[in-house]
Each structure stands twice: as C-alpha cells, then as structure tokens.
Design a protein around this nucleic acid. Sequence first.
DNA 1: ACAATATTCTACCAAGTGGTTGAATATATG
DNA 2: CATATATTCAACCACTTGGTAGAATATTGT
Lengths: 117, 117
Amino acid sequence: MPRSQQAGLDGVYAAIADPTRRAMLTVLAGGEVKVGTLADRFPMSFNGVSKHVKVLERAGLVTRRVHGREHWLRLKPAPLREAARWLEYYRAFWETRLDALERLLVPRARHDRRVRP
Amino acid sequence: MPRSQQAGLDGVYAAIADPTRRAMLTVLAGGEVKVGTLADRFPMSFNGVSKHVKVLERAGLVTRRVHGREHWLRLKPAPLREAARWLEYYRAFWETRLDALERLLVPRARHDRRVRP
DNA sequence: ACAATATTCTACCAAGTGGTTGAATATATG
DNA sequence: CATATATTCAACCACTTGGTAGAATATTGT
C-alpha cells in the first residue's frame, strides 16, 4: 500500500492522541453541537476549544455547518474507519513478521517430548 | 472503561502518527536491529534516529537490550494490539451512537414505497 | 595504552502545540 | 440603531518536537 494513501492518517492519529479531543468526539457522537455548547462541557477557554475543533476539522473528523452566527459541528466517522483499518492492518503485518521470525529462531521446542530427568 | 487505562495509549497514537516511526516499526518487525543499523536506513542523522527510538521506547513499542557498546532494539507488539483494540472499540461506539441518531431523525423513508408521480 | 566504534547527553534551532487574553467580525434582538 | 451573542483571528507564552552538531561515555580491537 503506497505511502501517499497513508499520509492523511497522520493527522487522524495525532488528533486522537489527545484525550481532550477524544472526549470531544464522544460528545460529537451524540449529534451536532455548536462550538459554544462544546466549550461549556470542557474546563478550558472558548478559544482553547475552538483550536481543538480546528485540529479535528483538519484531520477530517469533524465538519462545520455555519448557520447565521452559529457554527454546528458534526462528527465524520469515515477517517476513523480508515485509521482503525490501517492500524489493524499494520499491527497484523508487524506481528506476523515478528512471529515468523520467532518460529525461525526458536527451533521448535516440542511440547510432547519431556526432558529426561 | 476508565480513563486511567486509556492514558498509556496517548503515547502510542502519538508515536504512530509519525510516518518515520511507522517505517521504523516495519524495519523492527524484521527482527532485532542496532540503533546504528536503523540509522543507516533513514535519511537522517544518527542522533535524529536515536530520538525517534526514544519516543518508541517511551510508548512501550520498542525495548532495548544493551550488549557491550551495542544497543539492540526489539519491537514489542502488545501496545499496538491495545491501541488497535481501543481504536476499534471507540470507532464502533462513536459510529453506533451516530447511526442511532440518524435513524431517529430520518423518519424511516421506506424504499419499497414509491413516490406518487 | 591507544584509536576506532556505538551510543547517549547536552545544547541549540525552527516549527508546532496547548493554552491564555484581547480585539475583530458577523449575526441576532431590543 | 445599539447592544448582546457566537465565533474567529492575532498575539503571546511555555512546552514539545523533529532535526542538527558537538562533547562525553563506554566498549572493543590492535
């Protein structure tokens, strides 16, 4: 799988590495909320929240619908699916290579043959 | 699931958010390598590589076995398993809530009933 | 003992992050 | 119109990050 397809995921992993932003996604999963409503739920300045939202937007995890002076935020699950898929793909790939290596190095210590006392 | 159990994963997600470090994990999946050998494979100073390795170590993804003047690095897949598990868990959680909401809001536009012309 | 090797540690730099405050902008309401 | 509301933008701060270079440390080989 080409590096180019992977590039977009950097932002997603970076975004979910922050517990505040994960908490925001959980709030967003309950439906659209305004930036201000989101800000009320976090022990942080309005602007602090606004910045986190921008990070989530840049990662493609959240979209914004401006209605008058209100900005409504909506969770976009697609990049999460991608991120989960890739992580699992790589996890399996890395682990398989590692397991294969171990099988090569450890010369098959059979379980059904007892060591002579 | 308590927040405390989640805390360790921040480092893992942050670590894999960097493509250089993901590439390093792929190299490490091929078996133990010295820091220097790893450094030879990346277009970066030895010290740069050493720093990335420390990030991977702090995230628990890599362990170090010092043998004389050589430091051998080994991939530890356990935190990756955890990270993949949690990401999938949350992905499903967020998406399920979102889907439930959509089912609530969109009042079941049946497919098998045609609109009158 | 000496020189080469493998590595970290310290210091530095530019850029990014997480957070703040204050000003600016756009919109709604009296 | 004037004012309150919802939000961004700009500046700033302390800290982290990704990278560099140079000095220090530990080990090996001659």
